[in-house]
Simulated assay, not measured.
Amino acid sequence: MKQLDFNLLKVLEVLLEEQSVTAAATRLHLSQSAVSKQLNKLREALDDQLFERTAYGLKATPRALQLAPELRLLLQQLDKFTRPSTFEPAESRRTFRMHVVETAYSLTYPYFMPRLLKEAPLVSINSQTWSQDSMDKLLRCEIDMGIICREWDDRSLLHMNNIPVELGYAELIRDHPVCLVRQGHSLLSEEWNLETFLKYRHLQVAFGGLEHWLLDDVLKLSHLKRDIAVNMTDFNSALELCQHSDLVLCAPKKYVAQMIADYELVCLDVPVQLQPGAYVLVWHKHFELDPSHRWLRNLIVNGVQRLVKA
């Protein structure tokens, strides 16, 4: 093997994951021509084509596939080797990458960001909404941490015990769903039970990269299901629609408690026995001993604890 520029290894890792020069260039914030040039350097250094072009994108050669698992470990070790052993918040210019479920923003950021801005005025948080590919990015160490929803109910596939072993985590807040209906809704004059709950059509908000919830999984065990009239991805729009229709909206209690004061809505308990779920801070164990990473994790956990005690 010829002399290898270790800066090219990250390019190889991203190409192996994306199987596309265009997608790799986007992730690396480089031009397609720059990525192509670096791929040529990799081919020369490793004496292998590494990828073949097909109608569906790049196809890794056997040599590239052989390198893939060791490459990730090597890059993680190199990152640990070059990582500072100390962290001074007041001097740091680090940008942390976080993916967060929509409903967690208002329940967490106001409780740690003010202290962060005071202790580390040059540090930045690059936040994006948690989506279906966020877990893969977390497992590949492409993002620093995430805030996700998980369940304590044994009937859920999203149980806390099913968090990948590669991840460290800390529970932040427990919450449970409630029902919202407009003031004057006809069901308010009926006995509030499961039969009434299922009698009316529902409005559902999908968030956190998920499209169904523990409530529906539990109902399915009894061969029951809600009649979902509308699926949406925005809670503000859902609350507005709920206020102007007979649709029933189920939502996390702590989240909507901060919002329903602006709407003419009535809050009811869900007539199904459920264990509360949790908002959970998650990170790859690769970052476990990183002093800056540990500082931010502690800042988030300690700050949000004030909300729990309130």
Rank of each mutant, 00 (worst) to 15 (best):
L12S: 03
L12Q: 03
E13S: 14
E13F: 12
E13M: 12
V14T: 15
L15G: 08
L16D: 11
L16F: 10
E17K: 10
E18L: 01
E18T: 15
E18K: 15
E18Q: 15
Q19M: 12
S20W: 02
S20K: 05
S20L: 08
V21R: 10
V21F: 09
V21P: 02
T22M: 03
A23P: 03
A25F: 07
T26N: 09
R27F: 08
R27E: 13
R27D: 10
L30M: 15
S31W: 08
S31F: 07
Q32C: 06
S33D: 13
S33C: 06
A34H: 07
V35D: 11
S36F: 06
S36K: 08
K37Q: 10
K37V: 12
Q38V: 02
Q38L: 05
L39C: 08
L39T: 13
L39Q: 07
K41F: 06
K41Y: 01
L42Q: 00
R43T: 03
R43H: 00
L46V: 08
L46C: 02
D47W: 04
D48Q: 06
Q49D: 14
Q49H: 13
L50Q: 09
L50R: 12
E52F: 14
Y56K: 15
Y56R: 15
Y56M: 13
L58Y: 14
L58F: 12
L58W: 11
K59S: 15
K59L: 14
A60E: 14
T61F: 00
T61Q: 02
R63P: 00
R63H: 05
R63N: 07
A64T: 11
Q66A: 11
L67F: 12
L67Q: 06
L67R: 07
P69V: 01
P69S: 05
P69H: 03
R72H: 10
R72D: 11
L73M: 05
L73W: 01
L74D: 01
Q76P: 03
Q76Y: 00
D79N: 08
K80L: 14
F81K: 09
F81E: 13
T82G: 01
R83M: 10
T86I: 04
F87S: 05
F87G: 02
E88C: 01
A90V: 06
E91K: 14
S92I: 00
